[in-house]
Structures are given as structure tokens and as C-alpha cells.
Design a protein around this nucleic acid. Structure first.
Length: 789
DNA sequence: GCCAACGTTGGC
DNA sequence: GCCAACGTTGGC
């Protein structure tokens, strides 16, 4: 898994290694130092295949090759998009797929606030890729990493399990990516079939976001990646079948992320299968096996299923014979293709498949369709939607809703979800790989005489006063069913650091992603060196199993020696005092030689660089005040592989709490660790924090105990009285942590009576020292009293 | 890189 | 000519 991380990173020149030295714990320091040497530098795919993927067979021979298995392949990205003639305006509605009348039509979201509308909560669609207990999570994104967003249909691991450092034992459960079997070979072009089989997008379209249940963690850490390949077995489909036949097809798989209770799910409910157009190179939703071109590039005879013949009454006694064009009440004009008035006067047998009757002039039309359908996958709910919501900003802008038509955009809810996602992805990759269909600025172009675009205004007049950079952004609201993303950008005035929060909500999972940037390094693509020098950081305590979110190489802390006793826990260093390059394995504790890691808890941590002071800044509005005078890197636990023994060591409730904590924003630098016992430990990783040596342990039954510098906080301490006896919920935990952050450690007092004057004076504590005291105090009353006495 | 603004185009 | 909305531009 970590190697996959490494491979996904592909930022070779990032860093020079720096020495890591955990602070505050001499016990572990040596181990960590040793681990540096043991750590296997992840292979970085600095030289990706020319521009395109390898055949999937390659994964068969690298079962035990960890390095190779760590590689990720970037799918072919065809930059050579054929130039097409300019064709803009509304797409031809005739090419619009006919909407089934039985399909539910999303009602206009009336009465909604704009904000809620923007978030697009209209109809929840089960997101097959997420389960509430999905764990562990990867950082959803590191904004400098172009391939770290949550959805990366263009990334596939050649080998899912391979030789990660965690998985030296052979795993019989390893599966190659699923193969497709065809049953009607006569009409399938071999290349097409192979292309399809090897098209990773087909797999990733369904599995890229698959989460892995944490209820059965892999004993050796290999199950996690393996499950990512548990793709639904795709039934063979004749290429002659129509799209509808396919879309209604039921695929069955117990492991399919979107599997319903009976283990079946329709593809229509899932995301469209992403494939790549052989013609234009853009990703498109494959509608059936053998689809190698996107909707726009497909020859016309493939575009449409055999037309149904319908008779429409044109005149009093005149009937028009044409293809089925289901009209809707609201947009009757949209669905009729080229129904010019002159056609209405004659009975035209327009039943010949397209491409036969008007091939010549359809060349242009094809180009037009190609362009004009770029923004529509023709399959998603948004594309199939016909009603304007009337409440989104684009609808409000429309004249029919009383707007001024400044935006001139389609209703948010009708904007293609797929294209939106692709846009988001490709926009994060490189400019050259960007979907050509989407808006793209060409600075090298000579300015046209007639200036277009937004007029130069010194004073911008917001058409949507409620839309502000510091408020909710509606960018991805069309992903309403499965992803709602709220952005909150902030900029420190006069400061160099710019922080950005992304509040994401995926089904029940809500997590916050925070990105800290340094001015001058915003363009991380242009200056990776700057990036490497802790310019940009992402801190998130989300734990995502999404492999596409792989962002940095792992940092392993093998918590093999974590005892249940608090006296050692207080010195478990999860913090590196010396900043190490981001994305590099900074340290690793030695692992068991046999690789089984029995009884060990292995934590994969990713150093993400800059300090999470965003928490501080964000929390200043609340009650949290953590002064962080300097930046400090904080490792983020991304994976925790439970390597402890049997079921007896597992506590479901505790594990659930742990899972929930992993999906929650904890106070700054606090991380949760599950260790044998089971004990859920919350560690303050920041050496700067006054709680650096404080550990909260939650045991079975949610009973907890706080220890400070290896000493248990006495039960008479006021902290216990301020919180429930059992920390059963995330709120309880967070509340306690926030409370702790407001405290400091008693400094004790100097004992002038012990030792000679030549010896250094030692600070001691009173027998019943409170240990934790308000931050503004130095001593607890007991120690103060001891000094006086 | 994002996005508001708007010229432009296809469909009717 | 109107409408819808795609694609482009420039500000930020």
C-alpha cells in the first residue's frame, strides 16, 4: 500500500532527505533512526510511460515485486485533440438521449435557500464508493499533487497488492483486475475488445472510490489494496446491444461498492464507466463494451439505437413519420432533431439510421455534435434532467426566472456531473492534459480584435452578492448526490500564508480538508522545489481508503512496543522535530523480520509538511486556543493496520469510535491510534503544544484516562469532572481534547533541599500534583504549597 | 486556477 | 428573432 503511495506520488525531485528525530521520547528515537535506514524509499514513477498505460497483463508477473507493484499508470491522455470547427451554442437536442418516462424527474428545488440549493441535495443517490465505516482514509488531496484528488479514474495500480512493505507474505486473495468475457466474438473487433479489457477507466469507473471496510483489517495489510480491485464481474454483452439494454443490466457482486442488499446493482445507478475516446482522447462514459469513442466522436450509425417509428399528426390529415422523440412538456423543442418547418409539410421517412441519409452534411454536424456534446455525458442524471431548478444561481440569472442573463449557463442541476468531475481532475493535472472541451485559457493566443469575455471593471459588481469567496462555493454542487463540497478560502492579510478549507460531505461522512499555501508557491506545478520546501501542505485527519487519494509516501511507525501502560505512552513520539521533505518516507521503525507484524500496530503516516495552524486559526472562533509560535510538521496518520492478534483484541464500539475520530477534525495535532488492548489512544503530536506529553487512553467501555508525562492524571483532577466518565462519542473526545488544550503542565517546583549545590537543580512535583493546570499558571496549588512549606 | 461576464452559435 | 447555453476572455 505504501509503495502504491510512493508510486502515486511521482514527485521525485521533491526533496533532499533530512534527518528525522522525534522529540520527546528517547525511547523511540533510536528506533526511528534505525528505521530511516530500513525504510525502503518508495519508487517514484518519475518516468511514466510515454503517455499511456501498460496492458494490464503486466501485473501478473509482479506478484512479489513490491517496487513494481507500486507503480501507477496514468492512462493515455491524448493531447492531440483534433481541431474542430467552431460550433457553439446549445447542443442539438436530437442527440439528447430520450428520457424514460418512468424515470423520476427531479422536482424543482423550490423553497430552498440558495445555499442549500447550491449544495445540491436534491436526490440522494447511493454512492457505491463510500461506506460510513470506510477506513482508513487517505488524504483526499494535496493540492500540489495533481493526482491526489478523490476521483482518479485515470490512475490505476498495475498491481494492487504487490510488494508493499506490509505485504511480504503471499496473499492468495490477490486478484488481477477482473477480466471481461465476450460471448459474441463474431462482431467484436479484437483490438476493441482488448482495448476495453485494458482500459483501466472501465475498472476505475467503479472501483476508484471504493472504500474498504475496516471491520476486517488485513492482517498483513494486503487486503486493503486488494479489495480495491473487487470490481463487479461484468457480464458479457454483445456489442450489438443497445445502450439501454446495457444500462439496465444487472451486475452482481458481493463486493461491488454499490451493491444493494441483494447483491445486485444496476449500472445505471452507478457512475458511468469511464473510458477514453480514441478520437479525441477525452474521457467519456462508456455505454457498452466496445465503446471506444465518446459520444461526439462516435460514428452516427453507432450513435443511436434503431429508431422507433412514430407517427405524428402534423396537419389535419397529415401524419409525419419519424423517429421517436419523446417530448416533454417543458422543453418540447429540445427533443426534436432538425424538425424544420419544411419537414413538417411532407411525410419524410426519417427512419434510416443516421449516417446513411445525410452523411455529407453530417460531417459538419458531427463536428458540431462532437463539440456541443462535450459538456454532456448524456447519461448522468444531470444530463437527463430537463427541468431547471429555478433556484440555482444560473437559473436565477436566466431571463425566464427574472435574471439578467449575465451568466448564460445551464442550470446547475443540469450540468453534467461527469464532465464536472473530469474538469476538476484534469484541471489538477497538467494543462496539456486538460479536457479540451472545457474552458481553457490560451494566453499565447494573439488577442483578438474584438475583445470578449468579461469587461474590464475595476469595480466588480457581483451578480450574486451571496456568493463570496469566503463563503460557500457552489462549484461542485452538481455532484449533489455523492459529494458536496464547501469551500472556504481565507487569506491572511499581509501574511504569506494562505489557507483554504474544504468541507466535504460524502454521504454521512463529513470531513474537512485544509490546505495551507505559501504565497509565491501557489503554482506548485511550476516550482516543485518550492513545493518541496514546505510551501504547501495539506493536513487532514480524514482516513480514506481511496487509493486515488494517494498523495505522499508513507511514514511508518511501527508501534510494536506500545504498551497499555500509560507510562510509556506519554513518550511515544509521533512527531518529527526536523522537517523532512514532504512526500518522503521520513522514518520507519523496524518491522518484524517475518513481516507478519504479529501483535504490532502499524501506522502509516504521511508527512504533510506545514503546520496545521489552520486549526488554530479556525478554532479561534471557537474556544480553542493553541499558540503555535513556529511551524511544525505534523504527520498525519492515513492508515492504521491493525496487526494485533485475534478477535479478542477488537472492540467494535471502540473501533467505531476510532473510525469516527478518523473522519472528524480533531484539535490540532491530536491523532488517534488504536493499539492492542484494545486501547484507543489520542496523542498530541506537537512538541510545541502544552499537551505534548499528554495521552488520552480510551479503553473498552469508553472509560478513559489521561496521562501526562507518563504519569496518570489523578482521578480527582477537575478535568474528569468536566467530562463524562465515558467518552462514547466523538463529541466527548473532542470536547476533552479541547479542554486539555486549554491546560498546561505543571512545572513543579525546584527542590532546594536535595543534592549538593553543584548538582543541577531538579524540578519535582508534589505527590498529588495536578499535572495539568491552567495555561497561565506555572504550578499547581500542591506544588506551590510544597514550595512554601 | 477559478470564475464572472458575455460573444456567439445552434435550434426553433 | 428568440432562446439556450457553449466557449472564450480577462479579472482576481
Amino acid at each position: 500500500m505504501t509503495d502504491e503511495l510512493n508510486g502515486a506520488l511521482a514527485e521525485p525531485e521533491m526533496t533532499k532527505p533530512e534527518k528525522t528525530s522525534p522529540i520527546g521520547a528517547d525511547v523511540v528515537t533510536d528506533d526511528v533512526v534505525n528505521a530511516v535506514g530500513n525504510s525502503v524509499p518508495g519508487k517514484v514513477m518519475s518516468e511514466s510511460p510515454p503517455d499511456w498505460l501498460k496492458p494490464m497483463e503486466e501485473d501478473e508477473d509482479d506478484g512479489g515485486d513490491g517496487v513494481k507493484s507500486s507503480e501507477w499508470i496514468i492512462m493515455k491522455t491524448n493531447d492531440d485533440v483534433p481541431k474542430v470547427k467552431r460550433g457553439r451554442g446549445r447542443p442539438r437536442k436530437g442527440s439528447h438521449p430520450v428520457r424514460s418516462k418512468t424515470e423520476p424527474i427531479i422536482p424543482p428545488l423550490l423553497g430552498r435557500t440558495r445555499s442549500s440549493n447550491a449544495s445540491g441535495t436534491a436526490i440522494p443517490v447511493p454512492d457505491p464508493a463510500h461506506t460510513p465505516e470506510a477506513l482508513p482514509r487517505k488524504p483526499q488531496s494535496i493540492n500540489h499533487n495533481p493526482i491526489s484528488t478523490s476521483e482518479k479514474p485515470r490512475l490505476i495500480p498495475i498491481s494492487p497488492a504487490g510488494g508493499s512493505s506490509l505485504s511480504t507474505t503471499p496473499n492468495t486473495e490477490f486478484h488481477s483486475p477482473p477480466r471481461l468475457t465476450r460471448v459474441t466474438p463474431l462482431s467484436i473487433d479484437t483490438s476493441v475488445t482488448q482495448n476495453f479489457v485494458h482500459t483501466p477507466a472501465v475498472k476505475l469507473g467503479n472501483v476508484s472510490r471504493q472504500s474498504v471496510s475496516f471491520t476486517e483489517p488485513g492482517k498483513d495489510g494486503t487486503e486493503l489494496p486488494i479489495q480495491l480491485w473487487l470490481c463487479p464481474p461484468m457480464e458479457p454483452i454483445s456489442p450489438t446491444k443497445t445502450q439501454d439494454m446495457f444500462s439496465d443490466q444487472i451486475v452482481s457482486s458481493a463486493n461491488f461498492p454499490g451493491t444493494t442488499l441483494n447483491g445486485s446493482v444496476t449500472l445505471k445507478e452507478s457512475l458511468p464507466l469511464l473510458s477514453e475516446c480514441e478520437s479525441c482522447g477525452s474521457a467519456f462514459p462508456a455505454q457498452k463494451i466496445g465503446d471506444v469513442m465518446c459520444y461526439g466522436c462516435r460514428p452516427k450509425y453507432k450513435k443511436q439505437s434503431p429508431p422507433n417509428i412514430v407517427f405524428r399528426k402534423v396537419g389535419q390529415d397529415q401524419w409525419e413519420v419519424g423517429k421517436t422523440t419523446k417530448k416533454t412538456k417543458k422543453h418540447p423543442r429540445k427533443q426534436v432533431l432538425k424538425q424544420r418547418p419544411e419537414h413538417k409539410k411532407t411525410v419524410k421517412m426519417d427512419i434510416v439510421p443516421d449516417g446513411d441519409d445525410d452523411d455529407d452534411d453530417d460531417d459538419d454536424d458531427d463536428e458540431v455534435v462532437k463539440k456541443r456534446s462535450r459538456r454532456m455525458c448524456q447519461q448522468c442524471d444531470a444530463c437527463l434532467r430537463e427541468d431547471d431548478c429555478g433556484t440555482c444561481d444560473f437559473c436565477v440569472d436566466k431571463p425566464k426566472f427574472g435574471g439578467s442573463n449575465k451568466k448564460k449557463q445551464k442550470c446547475r442541476l443540469r450540468q453534467c456531473k461527469l464532465q464536472s468531475r473530469l474538469h476538476g481532475q484534469k484541471g489538477n493535472i497538467v494543462e496539456g492534459k486538460r479536457n479540451p472541451s472545457l474552458p481553457r485559457r490560451r494566453r499565447d493566443e494573439k488577442p483578438k480584435l474584438k475583445r470578449r469575455g468579461r469587461p474590464s471593471k475595476k469595480q466588480k459588481l457581483r451578480s450574486n452578492p451571496w456568493e463570496d469567496d469566503d463563503e460557500v462555493s457552489y462549484k461542485d454542487e452538481d455532484d449533489k448526490e455523492d459529494l458536496r463540497r464547501y469551500k472556504m478560502n481565507g487569506r491572511r492579510k499581509g501574511g504569506k500564508r494562505k489557507w483554504k478549507y474544504s468541507f466535504k460531505e460524502e454521504e454521512e461522512d463529513v470531513f474537512i480538508e485544509a490546505v495551507i499555501e505559501e504565497d509565491g508557491a501557489s503554482n506548485t506545478e511550476e516550482n516543485p522545489d518550492i513545493l518541496a520546501n514546505q510551501t504547501s501542505a495539506m493536513v487532514s485527519n480524514e482516513m480514506h481508503s481511496n487509493t486515488s487519494g494517494l498523495s505522499a509516501q508513507g511514514l511508518y511507525y511501527n508501534m510494536s512496543g506500545v504498551p497499555t501502560a500509560p507510562y510509556v505512552l506519554g513518550s511515544v513520539p509521533l512527531c518529527n522535530s526536523n522537517p523532512a521533505p514532504m512526500g518522503q518516507v521520513t522514518s520507519s521503525l523496524p518491522m518484524a523480520d517475518d513481516g507478519t507484524q504479529n501483535g504490532f500496530l502499524q501506522i502509516e503516516m504521511v508527512r504533510v509538511g506545514s503546520p496545521p495552524s489552520h486549526y488554530t486559526e479556525a478554532a479561534q472562533d471557537t474556544e480553542q486556543h493553541v499558540s503555535e509560535p513556529q511551524q511544525e510538521p505534523t504527520p498525519v496518520i492515513t492508515h492504521i493496520f491493525s496487526l494485533v492478534g485475534g478477535e479478542n483484541d477488537r472492540d467494535q464500539g471502540l473501533m467505531e469510535l476510532f473510525t469516527s475520530l478518523g473522519q472528524t477534525v480533531l484539535p490540532a495535532h491530536w491523532v488517534g491510534v488504536m493499539s492492542k488492548g484494545p486501547i484507543l489512544q489520542l496523542l498530541q503530536c506537537s512538541k510545541i503544544s502544552s499537551m505534548a506529553d499528554t495521552v488520552v487512553q480510551i479503553e473498552k467501555g469508553y472509560f478513559y484516562q489521561v496521562s501526562v508525562q507518563n504519569q496518570p492524571l489523578l482521578l480527582m483532577h477537575a478535568v474528569y469532572s468536566r467530562h463524562p466518565t465515558c467518552l462514547e462519542s466523538v463529541d466527548d473526545v473532542v470536547s476533552l481534547l479541547l479542554d486539555l488544550e486549554g491546560l498546561g503542565v505543571c512545572q513543579g517546583y525546584q527542590n532546594f533541599h536535595m543534592g549538593s549545590q553543584r548538582e543541577p537543580r531538579m524540578s519535582v512535583r508534589a505527590a498529588l500534583c495536578d499535572l495539568l493546570i491552567p495555561k497561565d499558571e506555572e504550578q499547581c496549588p500542591k506544588c506551590t504549597h510544597a514550595v512554601e512549606s
